[in-house]
Design a protein around this nucleic acid. Sequence first.
DNA 1: TAGATTGTTAATCGATTAACAATC
DNA 2: TAGATTGTTAATCGATTAACAATC
Lengths: 213, 213
Amino acid sequence: MSQPSTRAIPEPTLRRLPAYHEFLKKLRAQGKTLVSCTHISEALGVYSTQVRKDLAVTGIVGRPKTGYDIVELMRSIESFLGWDDRRSAFLAGVGSLGSAILGYRGFESHGLNIVAGFDTDPGIVGTEVHGKTILHLDRLTGLARRMHVHMGIITVPADVAQDVADRMIAGGIYAIWNFAPTSLRVPDNVVVQNENLASSLAVLSNRIANREP
Amino acid sequence: MSQPSTRAIPEPTLRRLPAYHEFLKKLRAQGKTLVSCTHISEALGVYSTQVRKDLAVTGIVGRPKTGYDIVELMRSIESFLGWDDRRSAFLAGVGSLGSAILGYRGFESHGLNIVAGFDTDPGIVGTEVHGKTILHLDRLTGLARRMHVHMGIITVPADVAQDVADRMIAGGIYAIWNFAPTSLRVPDNVVVQNENLASSLAVLSNRIANREP
DNA sequence: TAGATTGTTAATCGATTAACAATC
DNA sequence: TAGATTGTTAATCGATTAACAATC
């Protein structure tokens, strides 16, 4: 096709692609060079037809009877998920969770570059956490605009999350990764990804209650 | 009906209930006593019919024209999600993310009691982190069995996550909250909730690419 | 009563699963 | 060639959305 597809990629597919990539990394470390959907299917508990459809969105083409080239498939996933790019992000709220995220090296290989942390605590502002400079929250809006940062990570308590989101949006940030347990009001052109641990815990607890013993 | 319903609660419903609860907390703080589904619907961006169905699973009954009593509804959600109970859990991997989770006070009100942390680093073993004792990983299996702990939280690097999961299961743990970016092989009677930040980032990045400017 | 809201049933939509044709 | 595997189309399933009846 000559024009870019407008059909949205299903969210479950997007969530599975990194898991496939992780599995492929293991296979590659074992010296394997080829993989079939059946193989991935058995390892991750996803129907092989589903795996095939998921992989297809990345543009990879497999070979009947042999499967996919592992390195080629990994590159295809990386490029599709934008792991080759560098997206700059600001993080607000350098508490224990914020510090953990600042220090997580895994994001670097996923195209995410957290360039600075922001907080209001005078004991933290001006220091470095995991090599990242911590600045006062009052500087977030201006710096986001000046540095063309478009992604924000919110790790502040729930009661100040909306204020932080407003400051981010005022600075031109249009993608927010929200770890505060509260929903944010944002304009239509701003995308928010909520990371709610209470929700995940609710799912796990319910599965415990309904599990076969 | 006289026997307990066997129909599983939809996962999206379970994920939304804590968000409703959070919103109700705000309303209560404002001195409100009643709430309608329309009100919740507008605040959280969920269709009011959906809200009504979600709330119904908790057993709450509303009153036409008036809506739901906020305090009663909060209690209904809390009781349905098991937030009145006390589930003991062990956490393995006291790095930055593990420490953050050990220190997160929000879990206490959600029925989760992390009783101890485990690690192999001699510099951490024997200390306390956020008031929780850190023990050597070798003691996890035995203590889980002796203390009847059935939930485990994995915050170790991907390459040792499977080993930690095996130790947990050997100790009688049958619910695992996995923060390591790898999928775990577990027996059928063990439930696993994967918390994969790379997956969430993939969804957010894709939404950025497809967003209306 | 009239009207707002709940609760429920039906229709729609989208993802998963199954069936099968194409291909190396 | 035969058979394993991909790629695609059709069927199923489950959640969301819409329609509407019940009720205070």
